[in-house]
Amino acid sequence: MTDRLLSVQNLRVTFGNRDVLRELNFEVFSGDCLAIIGPNGSGKTVLLKALQHLIPYEGEIHWSQEARVGYVPQSVAADRQLPLRVTELLEAKARFLHLADEEMEQVSSELNLSPEFLSACIGTLSGGQFQKVLIAFAMLGRPNVLLFDEPTASLDELSQERIYELVHELQSQKGITVILVSHDLSIVYRYANRVLCLTKGKPCIGPPNEIMTPQMLEELYGAPSKYYRHIQEH
């Protein structure tokens, strides 16, 4: 039986008088790739932040003792003019967490980070390279769960493909559990084994082919389900 890593019960997050998330119940098991889908403003990013206890919430979020969580945010409002090299950023995290020196080398080798890449200033990196830095940052500390918040927003198609291949490799080869927020339904269909759908009504969770029905997608995004059918044909 697979281990349960996360249990969420009656989760509710409110901003002012507005319920962003309510009556949310789900579980995540070791090895899962759970995709969170929903229209803009449905609370996907809020959910990832609540899962890390970064914002106030009601209800229960229980991580198992074995869970070590890494987080790759949607975007980082970092000043691209910061005189900060990739290696300085990663070393700062490694020192703060008192990680062994080998861990930096291991992450660099796993993600194929070259010495030139490591010594580059973050301001000089392309969108795809910057995203790779965020993944490397999340990988320090040997996480067995990675939370991705639209990791490829604002990237070109080739970079998107590379990032998702990397995510898939981490999941399949290293057995990392992935919780992924994505608007890209083809990616969700390709990689996720479970889908959590945040709707205005009651949230639902299940395998992609059960959750991502044309009716559900039309309800979610208010558009016909052409995209879904297109994926099905491939």
Partner: peptide, 10 residues
């Protein structure tokens, strides 16, 4: 400096 969110998560 890099990201208050990531710093908190760390």
């Amino acid at each position: 400096l890099f990201s208050p969110d990531l710093a908190s998560a760390t």
